[in-house]
Amino acid sequence: MQGDFFQLLKEQGYQFGVPAAAGSEVDIPNATTILAFKYRDGVLVAGDRRATAGNTVMYDRTDKVLEIDRHSVMAIAGVPATAYEMARILEHSFKYYRRTQLQELSFEGKLRALSKLLKENVAAALAGTGAVAPIFAGYDLEQGAAKTYFYDILGAEFEGVEYAVSGSGSPTIRGILHYLNTWGEQPLSEMQEEQAAIQALRLLTSAAEFDSATGGVNREANLYPVIKFITASGVRTMPDTQLKPLFEMKVARHV
């Protein structure tokens, strides 16, 4: 069938998901916290910005929430090299499909594309050099609904009806999300944009509290998590100029 970019790449000799030699003991950067939940207008996706390798902090300005096209976002947890490569393949696959077939790839088709990449990557994931467990979130224009999905490293896809989390810091916030959504003042899906952003900042700050591999907010360095909103009108990133006052007023504890 025409319009398959990944197939085209393979025909051109491109290899993906080839495992490195097993048993090599390298510290590969892989810990993180990413989350997505549905709010009133769509879906919010957020991620911290730390990349670690073993005990070392590799980088503190990683962007783990990647815009794949106008209406979908992939948040990555796991080995960054593989994850970024996957994001690049997906981005080009969706563009290529739209331009060749003269119609947008369906949301389900997009989910399958990511699942397929993860499956191709199983060998590398099990060898320990390429495990990725991403979140895929977006706005399904056909159904007029926001959607969130999370994947395991083998490529199984699960729908997060209200929210989805991944990464080493995720066990901490999974409980909080459940509590918030069930007994909070209002369920997540009724929150307005600003309220949703405040909760996302608080959640990531909590994750950083208990997970050394998740980076928190560093106000001195003007370093804030990445928060993106996906609505019917597309993907939008919350600028630092908005995150900063929100953090100061609603998240930082004033003693």
Binding site: Q2, F5, L8, L9, Q12, R88, I89, H92, K95, Y96, R99, T100
Partner: peptide
């Protein structure tokens, strides 16, 4: 059109 699309996307990737 298809050969242009193929070329452009493989190159862009």
């Amino acid at each position: 059109r298809f050969s242009l699309l193929e070329m452009a996307h493989v190159e862009g990737f």
